[in-house]
Write a protein that binds this DNA or RNA. Sequence first.
DNA 1: GCGACAG
DNA 2: ATCTTGTCGC
Length: 243
Amino acid sequence: MTTVGVPAGWPATEEEARAVQDRLRGRVVLDEPGPPPGTGRVTGVDVAYDDDRDLVAAAAVVLDAATLEVVAETTAVGRISFPYVPGLLAFREIPTVRAALDALPCPPGLVVCDGYGLAHPRRFGLASHLGVLTGLPTIGVAKNPFTFTYNDPGPGRGSAAPLLSGTEDVGRALRTRDGVKPVFVSVGHRVSLDNALAHTLALTPAYRLPETTRRADALCRRALQEATAGAAQEASMRQAPTS
DNA sequence: GCGACAG
DNA sequence: ATCTTGTCGC
């Protein structure tokens, strides 16, 4: 487990954060297809919070894209770097997620984020931001439609419908399991939408959510609990050093 | 101005 | 995200 602080120069206000998004937005690469689904590695990243203790834990789990078996996994714990503000999620998640990615013993391949990429008020969501900062191919798979609209996809797995920001097409509502609520897929960095959808389907042979996010979610929760337990133990040591 | 709003 | 028990169903 890695420990991280808030990076120097990290935005402290919403205004600064929006300015960063406007400045970095132009660096997103949208004209690359990205790695072919089912080959190489796919990495899930996710974060869990304890706002009261000002703790955040991130996990990165690398899967073999063909077998979906775990190849490597890391965690990182740090201080919360930004409040939750819709549209500014990346500033809350990225420092710890990057630390977890940096700690991996192997290249992550495609990174699957829990949230959005292009589908964002300024077209620069978490997946876009993480991709630009790391140079890695990224996609976003979100559980909720955020502020976007869509028509229900057909009932079968694989059915998809446009995710719309007004009249602008920013991603897809994708049914990953028969008769189950869709997930919301958008491109991040260096991956086409078709490839993002294919990867998402390849990662959902059994559940609504990609195996990558399921694994990363479980791991970061565990890491947060261990960090929380560690903090509690240190506190009791200070009160009763012999216990 | 008010409400909604990824995690 | 997180607080939280049981419960219906395959």
